[in-house]
Amino acid sequence: MPCNEANHVCDKTQYKESTLWEKIILNLHLIYCSACRKYSSNNGKLTKLLKDSKIDCLDDKSKEAMKKEFEKALAKNQPE
């Protein structure tokens, strides 16, 4: 498995979208590739931090609706 593919599988694993076979091949790659081991470790840390922080954000539709309302108010607020 080349490194770019290993990184891709590692990314997919963070979202539970990799297959068992892909994970096995990735782990074999990680045994001998220190660069990918480092990437995998940082990637795992990032996933944990995001989970721990319970961060949330607005979805696009809500943001667009908010923007429309705000732009209306902004137009009214503009000096003549």
Binding site: I55, D56, C57, L58, K63, M66, F70, L74, N77
Partner: peptide, 17 residues
């Protein structure tokens, strides 16, 4: 205020939720 929604809406939403 023109960029408020793009710049701060997620931050404020996360703070509020």
């Amino acid at each position: 205020p023109n960029n408020w929604i793009d710049l701060y809406s997620d931050y404020l939403f996360n703070y509020t939720i």
